[in-house]
Design a protein around this nucleic acid. Structure first.
Length: 288
DNA sequence: TTCTTTGTTCCGGA
DNA sequence: GTCCGGAACAAAGA
């Protein structure tokens, strides 16, 4: 699943490959992704140069000349793929190989002035691509309610304490709340709570300052490590190979129901439960 | 056929 | 008004 680290890797990849290129043509092969695909609006970017690539939470923002931005979200299975002039996959900005079977899910294809192409491919069609005026991005429904970036200085102990005042949620729901901190998804929240040795269903009013510090520390640590690995695995990417193996190895609890806890000397088995309709994995011995 | 999976938005109830 | 939890959304594999 594309979570914050994956989107960050995509951003860095696109910064190297499509910045300063001019959009020559856009092929749109679907009427609807997560939302209606507005061909007219998207086509307004044709003829304009790409001036910056940004990430906010899990959103990717491709800014073009004259106050337009392409806002994209990868949803569950969205990915950007880059084709060079010989139509060979030059570098994927995400971890799936583009198979022949997968090409029917190439929904939007950007053609650039140097004959390279950027393909938006999405099997589940749960992602989206929109074009918005750059100076109105922050007021868009998608971005306006987002909390601080988890890797920014604004996300700190003081902020954490202030936000949870008079709130009743459990810890997992808090970390999943994009208004609290933006960009953490189910997988990383499971991982952070395991490392922090805290129960997902712990009531947030019962969390100590030390525990808050631990949570923030592990959020930063896990995200940074994942960004680093994502980057290296794209560099080492070879045709016909996904990066599934490497990617999965990162997880300490997610998807490990029934398996032994990975902490030293712990003999417990990882449990699975459901919180707010999301799979939740934890060790009942290590997480208090 | 039904269940599961993902993140965001929307909506009803408290 | 505000907070919170759950449903809906697309699509496919088990």
């Amino acid at each position: 699943m594309p979570e914050l680290p994956e989107v960050e890797v995509v951003k860095k990849s696109l910064e190297k490959s499509i910045k300063n290129l001019i959009i020559k043509k856009i092929q749109i092969n679907t009427k609807k992704l997560r939302y209606f695909v507005d061909k007219n609006k998207i086509n307004r970017t044709v003829g304009r140069k790409i001036i910056s690539i940004k990430r906010r939470s899990k959103y990717l923002i491709i800014e073009v000349e004259k106050n337009l931005s392409i806002l994209a979200h990868l949803g569950m299975t969205g990915k950007f793929l880059l084709l060079n002039k010989k139509k060979k996959l030059k570098r994927t900005s995400f971890y799936y190989q583009l198979s022949n079977k997968g090409s029917k899910h190439n929904h939007v294809i950007f053609n650039f002035n140097n004959n390279t192409k950027l393909i938006y491919n999405d099997v589940r069609k749960f992602g989206f691509i929109k074009v918005i005026q750059s100076n109105k991005l922050n007021q868009s429904t998608h971005l306006k309610t987002l909390g601080p970036e988890p890797l920014s200085k604004n996300f700190n102990t003081t902020y954490f304490k202030k936000f949870i005042l008079n709130k009743k949620k459990c810890l997992k729901d808090l970390l999943m709340d994009q208004k609290f901190v933006s960009g953490l998804g189910n997988i990383y929240v499971n991982e952070v709570l395991f490392k922090s040795e805290l129960r997902p269903n712990k009531i947030i009013q019962k969390i100590s300052t030390k525990e808050i510090e631990k949570i923030i520390k592990f959020i930063r640590e896990i995200l940074k490590k994942s960004i680093k690995l994502g980057g290296s695995s794209i560099k080492d990417f070879k045709d016909g190979e996904g990066r599934d193996g490497n990617f999965q190895q990162l997880f300490s609890v997610y998807g490990r129901e029934g398996e032994k806890c990975l902490n030293n000397k712990c003999q417990s088995i990882i449990k699975k439960t459901v919180i707010s309709n999301r799979s939740t994995f934890f060790c009942k011995s290590c997480q208090k």
